[in-house]
Design a protein around this nucleic acid. Structure first.
Length: 459
RNA sequence: GGCGCCAUAGCCAAGUGGUAAGGCAGGAGCCUGCAAAGCUCUUACCCCCAGUUCAAAUCUGGGUGGCGCCUCCA
């Protein structure tokens, strides 16, 4: 498999550090709010990467953190009159609800910053000892001048950065680009004891500490949104590599933004839709399909119209699966050949995914397969091979995380009405048939007639 | 000022040297009591200009337009 490595800016063959396994770290959410559709993109992208690598037979250890202490957390907790801990616990719970709806698997570990203060302090101490960090008025800063490779990920040059940028100039820092590893507590703020007095971690150090703790000093893949490239990931590299003298991550992956009217969706701009709200109108799996319908590195322009298109497209997949399921339950004796269609599906799907996780292409492959299968089974015969055809489809849908595994329970009331309708139809009482169909529709279900019988499905 | 990304049909979106996948929407047809589902056909001067090449959406140079990072941000 090839992956575009943002460190080298090249597509590279993805090779694990240890045979047969991958260690992946992805930056998770700061839990002071529901996450929005833009935040959801990396969750879905890296979940899909993880699923695909597992599908290929690798053991994947996937870590995604929760940032549960920082300025925003403190501010929001203060506004709402609750503790930072309470705020964090609440939105972590809400994160899992939305993630489940988007069919995002739980990471192997979801470490919280507040539960790793000891590891963080240890790392900061090491950096001070090695001369890469210094204490100043209870704060500890990373000395960017001490790390010669600073800027290697983002292609930034320290001297150029200082020119036009609005940098936080503080007398506490030796250099404007130095960033905080540890912040002294202000009055009334949540804090932990440290060798430098009461305080809390800066906003970059937690990822370094937790990545190293759970995945080792050098990991395979580190991922996140493009906006984290600088300074967050750059700082992670500086901290980690200065401390260990080893490469922090072999591959860096950055996903593109979700835009609204071609502007980046962000909380500070206020132009965002929370996943929570979107899910009121759309199927979570359709939202996921929408996300995966473009290459992960490209921006996606978000709108409800586009989401509706995905919802319809998703329905097309579901129809095909329902049709196959129907054939399986109502088999006929003749068999049809689905082998070549399945082979093409598998080969092309793998080729697409192997090429830098090209899910858009992979989805195209799936739709081509659906068309073939529809032709084989609907226009012509029907046979036992429907089982194979469905299994092949479902297997790949599951890799993309868009397999609807939920059992649809159809209420007795609906099946009764459907039964009555069938009787009406055999008596050619079309008026009654239509009337019953409408009644069923009111209950949120739909009846479809096929050459082989009646199918009921949820609207 | 520095660093970087994007431009393919009405709307999305693959395609990185060999003559334009796929989805949505629209049109025509087949099937059907009508529908639904499905199938077939149909909709592209690949932003512009120059260059390289037998061959360019794809490579090079130059434009134009849009966006992002450099400050919390996925």
């Amino acid at each position: 498999m090839k992956i575009f490595n943002s460190m080298t800016n090249k597509k590279e063959e993805l090779k694990p550090l240890k045979e047969g396994q991958f260690h992946i770290y992805a930056c998770g959410p700061t839990v002071y709010n529901y996450f929005h559709i833009g935040n959801a993109r990396p969750f879905i992208v890296f979940d899909t990467l993880r699923r695909y690598l597992e599908f290929l037979g690798y053991t994947v250890t996937f870590v995604q953190n929760f940032t549960d202490v920082d300025d925003k957390m403190i501010n929001v907790a203060h506004q709402e009159g609750i503790t930072v801990k309470e705020l964090g616990e609440h939105y972590i719970e809400e994160y899992f609800k939305d993630a489940r709806a988007l069919n995002i698997k739980n990471a192997s570990v979801h470490p919280k910053a507040t539960e790793h203060i000891g590891d963080i302090i240890q790392l900061v101490k090491t950096l001070i000892e090695k001369g890469n960090a210094y204490e100043s008025c209870g704060d500890v800063y990373f000395d960017t001048q001490s790390f010669a490779e600073y800027g290697k990920l983002s292609g930034q040059d320290l001297s150029e950065l200082e020119m036009g940028a609005r940098i936080d100039v503080s007398e506490k820092k030796r250099n404007p680009m130095d960033f905080a590893l540890w912040k002294a507590a202000k009055e009334g703020e949540i804090s932990w004891d440290s060798p430098w007095g009461a305080g809390r971690p800066g906003w970059h150090i937690e990822c370094s500490a937790m990545s190293m703790k759970y995945l080792g000093e050098t990991i395979d893949i580190h991922g996140g949104g493009q906006d984290l490239k600088f300074p967050h990931h750059e700082n992670e590299i500086a901290q980690s590599e200065a401390a260990t003298g080893k490469p922090f991550a072999n591959y860096w992956m950055h996903n593109g933004y979700i835009n609204i009217n071609n502007k980046k969706m962000s909380k500070s701009e206020g132009n965002f839709f929370t996943v929570r709200d979107i899910l009121k109108e759309f199927d979570g799996l359709a939202v996921r399909l929408f996300m995966l319908s473009a290459h992960y590195s490209n921006p996606i322009n978000f709108s409800k119209e586009l989401l509706e298109q995905s919802q319809t497209a998703f329905g097309r997949i579901q129809n095909c699966r329902e049709n196959l399921a129907f054939i399986i339950n109502n088999p006929k004796e003749n068999t049809v050949d689905v082998k070549s269609a399945i082979n093409t599906l598998n080969t092309d799907f793998l080729a697409a995914m192997d090429d830098d996780l090209n899910t858009a292409d992979a989805i195209g492959v799936i739709f081509e397969y659906i068309k073939q299968i529809n032709t084989i089974f609907m226009a012509g015969g029907t046979g036992q091979n429907a089982q194979d055809a469905l299994a092949a489809l479902d297997r790949l849908l599951d890799v993309l995380g868009i397999l609807d595994s939920g059992e649809q329970k159809i209420p007795q009331e609906v099946t009764d009405l459907a039964q009555q309708r069938s009787e009406a139809r055999t008596q050619k009482n079309w008026a009654l048939s239509d009337e019953l169909r409408d009644k069923i529709k009111e209950l949120g279900y739909e009846v479809k007639d096929t050459p082989d019988g009646v199918k009921i499905s949820k609207l």
